[in-house]
């Protein structure tokens, strides 16, 4: 009943399929590929007009800002890029792998392994402590948890002293930091953040952006932010407008 994900050595992927049957899934070679590529992407919710997205590319370790007013489809795009929504038309490629080729279970695994997500509202598994939330992200993403790596991550985000606290006892700023730590827990190739600064004052918005930028570079992850927050525009050279 319980699926144990194991790295590398095991014969089978967590979905029960032999890894050798899908050698393209894990791991991948990121050297000469853009980490993220979207082309001809369109999406329509049932009974809603189709949303068309511009083509864009994000290099390995690069930063990309996707802006647009409320309701233009930023969240939809982020969910398409991270495989939370299935692509209907067009293509999303992460490191040369087209997300269309994956089954739902493969998509889940792929996302866990290579994409770290930060949402506007930082929420966690409330029955677990701060460090166990990181452990869970490591487990689901990388197949096993690593306590010392988790502690190192909390340390670099300045919340190591809260490691064994329940997440409910964290302040707003600490929750944002934990959300960033969780996104990086499985050492993803790309971090995707949805409105990470929109509800914050100038000072905290600056702080959160700096943390996101610094930590993703430290962990060699590309950073894709979708936001209507105009304050972020000056921070990114690579921008796409919806």
């Amino acid at each position: 009943m319980l699926q144990k994900l194991t790295d590398g050595g095991s014969e089978k992927a967590a979905n029960g399929l032999p890894l050798t049957a899908h050698p393209e899934i894990l791991p991948f070679d990121v050297e000469n590929q853009p980490i993220l590529k979207s082309s001809q992407l369109k999406y329509s919710y049932p009974g809603q007009p189709e949303i068309s997205f511009p083509d864009f590319v994000c290099d390995r370790g690069g930063h990309l800002l996707i802006t647009g007013n409320s309701g233009t489809g930023k969240t939809t795009l982020l969910h398409l890029l991270s495989g939370l929504l299935r692509v209907q038309k067009g293509d999303v490629e992460i490191a040369g792998k087209n997300l269309k080729d994956f089954s739902q279970a493969e998509l889940d695994r792929f996302r866990g392994r290579h994409v770290g997500l930060v949402f506007q509202q930082p929420r966690f598994i409330s029955s677990l402590s701060v460090i166990d939330n990181i452990g869970a992200a490591q487990y689901f993403g990388a197949g096993k948890s690593d306590r010392s790596a988790a502690l190192g991550l909390l340390e670099s985000l300045g919340i190591a002293d809260k490691a064994s606290k329940p997440t409910g006892e964290l302040s707003g700023g600490e929750r944002q930091r934990l959300a960033i730590a969780r996104a990086l827990a499985a050492k993803p190739a790309v971090v995707m953040a949805d409105e990470p600064t929109s509800s914050l004052d100038d000072e905290n918005a600056e702080l959160v952006y700096n943390l996101l930028a610094r930590e993703s570079s430290d962990y060699n992850a590309a950073l894709v932010v979708v936001s209507h927050d105009g304050r972020l525009k000056e921070k990114f050279q690579n921008r796409v407008e919806l």
Binding site: L84, Q104, D108, I125, A136, A137, F140
Partner: peptide
């Protein structure tokens, strides 16, 4: 919370 767990890479099963 379950959606968060899914977003972290947990499969349906």
């Amino acid at each position: 919370e379950m959606a968060i767990i899914r977003s972290m890479g947990a499969m349906r099963r």
